[in-house]
Design a protein around this nucleic acid. Structure first.
Length: 564
DNA sequence: GCCGTTTTCGGCCCGACTGTTTTCAGTCG
């Protein structure tokens, strides 16, 4: 049993209670308890008394104790007696919440999505009080959508939706300014919709123009302050919400709709304790409504430093000192990128110029090694050729330190693709797994251990090999990996490519690891991925001194030369 | 169900939109 099992139990109980029309505050107490356990940095075995955690009292503690002792929960068992499992998936249908679902179940005996759809088609739903013809149609439509449209999209897909919508907003004259909000602004790995804050003095015109754009498939809701539509792009559909605001309310509305919900609840509690009230329109203080010139001013009003959107998740970000958490501005170099020597699209010189243009103080060229044939990996001869080329180019670019490196394969049996004699000629060595992802955890850990133990390997790239919304990654024992990294002075990478974000924020949080964040650029444009990487670090509440590519040019050079 | 230096009872974030309930409940974010 792990903490995750207990969190799942409490959340399941909450959902069943919701459908049993239990007191909403009791439901929320179970959800809060689950959240409190998730945020606690200790593992299950390190927690002796759950009731000491804030948000867990006698009731929830009894439920947990029973579950930990004999692996079951009588509270949940009783709830399951009274509520059919299949009703839970109905909560995902828009316009249906616990009360309406309970009514459908009680009055019509509905237990499955298919059954509910049949009742809609037979016209029996609209005969119930509280339900009309329109509701009946909407439910039937939503069931079809639920069965076809994916529930959430990975961040890379979300960002491509974002850019087509922003391009459209740029062209609408009555839009004065706009900003992405919601989970996309917080750089969540997966999001189900997109939110935008739009400043305009003619909301009706913006809404009308927008809903007539060719990619808008459906209008879900349209009011004076809000527009909700479905947008189609590359055969995928996604919900897009837009809030129309005045200049005065811009930043408080942006803050409100950036969320997360937990962050907002926390901010409102803080306001309340000072006799103030936060809404999307501003901060009510007595009879005054205070508005702000920026989000930073808003936070400052509550004596808080600016909290970057990526950090606004649990609410605890308001309790800790975030002043040393890394920001994009702290990044002084990129240590992982490819050129035409292997599978990159640009030459060494072009990558150098792109890094100079970004204002970097140092960079490492790290093409693939010989075993990675699909990527045209370099053998010793071609690697020497590249080392020579870099040596020749250095004097032309005094503004940046250019290191020669490699992203070397860790082979199937744990041996490394280059000998130590070759590695010692390089300034910087990255090791990574690119093959045999299906191996057992022991085999994978043996490979990672072998790389960490090599005196020349400075960092492990994309340590789990996962792709967000794609493959899960190979079998890594994180506890062991973290210990190995510390014991051998090996740095772990947060790969900034939005398909990877590997290691993830949940792994690095509270890990105490030394980290590096790199774009793994295969194109000059990919150097811009750094924002996703730093957002991932922010989510993990990582301070800048834990990240080697925030070091000054001199400190980084010294760190490279000193060795492990 | 949880919490508390104004509280051991009475709160628990706040507002927009929809549909149908002719004055508001339910849902959503």
């Amino acid at each position: 049993m792990t903490k995750k099992d207990i969190i799942n139990l409490l959340e399941t109980i909450a959902t069943y209670m919701e459908l049993s029309l239990e007191n909403p505050f009791k439901v929320s107490a179970y959800r809060k308890a689950a959240g409190a356990i998730e945020r606690d940095p200790r593992s299950l075995s390190e927690i002796d008394d759950f009731s000491e955690i804030k948000g867990i009292g006698k009731g929830v503690n009894d439920v947990i104790s029973e579950y930990v002792e004999n692996g079951r929960s009588s509270v949940l068992d009783e709830l399951k007696e009274s509520v059919p499992v299949s009703l839970i998936q109905m909560l995902k249908l828009p316009t249906l919440g616990p009360k309406k679902i309970a009514k459908l179940h009680k009055e019509l005996g509905v237990v499955t999505l298919e059954g509910l759809k049949a009742e809609c088609e037979a016209g029996r739903v609209s005969e119930l009080s509280g339900f009309g013809k329109k509701t009946e149609e909407n439910i039937a439509k939503a069931i079809d959508e639920l069965l076809t449209r994916p529930e959430k999209y990975p961040i890379e897909k979300i960002q491509s939706f974002r850019s087509i919508i922003e391009a459209a907003l740029d062209e609408i004259r009555s839009v004065d300014r706009y900003n992405i909000a919601g989970s996309a602004r917080r750089y969540k790995e997966m999001s189900k919709d997109l939110d935008f804050i739009v400043q305009t003095d003619n909301a009706a015109d913006v809404a009308e123009t927008f809903i007539n754009l060719p990619f808008v498939q459906d209008v879900v809701a349209k009011g004076e302050r809000k527009l909700s539509v479905v947008v189609e792009h590359d055969l995928d559909q996604i919900g897009v919400d837009m809030r129309f605001v005045t200049p005065e309310a811009y930043h408080t509305t942006l803050h409100h709709f950036t969320g997360s919900k937990e962050h907002n609840v926390k901010m409102r509690q803080i306001a309340k304790s000072r006799g103030e009230k936060i809404s999307e329109y501003g901060v009510e203080k007595g009879d005054d409504l205070l508005t702000f010139e920026s989000e930073a001013d808003f936070f400052s009003h509550f004596d808080l430093p600016y909290i970057a959107p990526a950090m606004r998740e649990t609410g605890e970000e308001t309790d800790i000192d975030v002043s040393d958490i890394i920001t994009l501005d702290d990044i002084r170099g990129d240590l992982h990128m490819h050129t035409v020597y292997s599978d990159g699209a640009y030459s060494v010189r072009e990558m150098i110029e792109a890094c100079v243009a970004k204002g970097y103080e140092y960079m490492v060229i790290t093409d693939h090694s010989k075993s990675l044939r699909v990527a045209n990996g370099l053998d010793e001869d071609r690697l020497w050729q590249q080392i020579e080329e870099i040596r020749k180019l250095r004097p032309e670019y005094p503004e940046i330190d250019i290191y020669s490196g490699t992203e070397m394969d860790i082979l199937k049996d744990g041996t490394l693709d280059f000998s130590d004699d070759m590695l010692k000629e390089l300034d910087y060595v990255i090791a990574a797994i690119h093959s045999s992802f299906q191996q057992t955890e022991d085999e994978i850990m043996h490979r990672l251990e072998s790389a960490c133990n090599n005196p020349y390997v400075r960092h492990i790239a994309h340590p789990t090999g996962r792709l967000i919304g794609g493959r899960a990654g190979y079998a890594v024992d994180f506890e062991k990996l973290i210990q190995m990294a510390k014991d051998t002075n090996t740095v772990m990478e947060v790969n900034a490519n939005p398909r990877r974000l590997d290691l993830s924020s949940s792994v690095i949080r509270n890990s105490g690891l030394m980290l590096t964040v790199n774009t793994d650029a295969h194109h000059t444009r990919h150097l811009e991925f750094m924002e996703y990487g730093t957002a991932t670090l922010q989510k993990g509440l990582i301070e800048k001194n834990q990240v080697i590519n925030t070091f000054s040019r001199e400190d980084f050079r010294e760190w490279v030369n000193k060795g492990k």
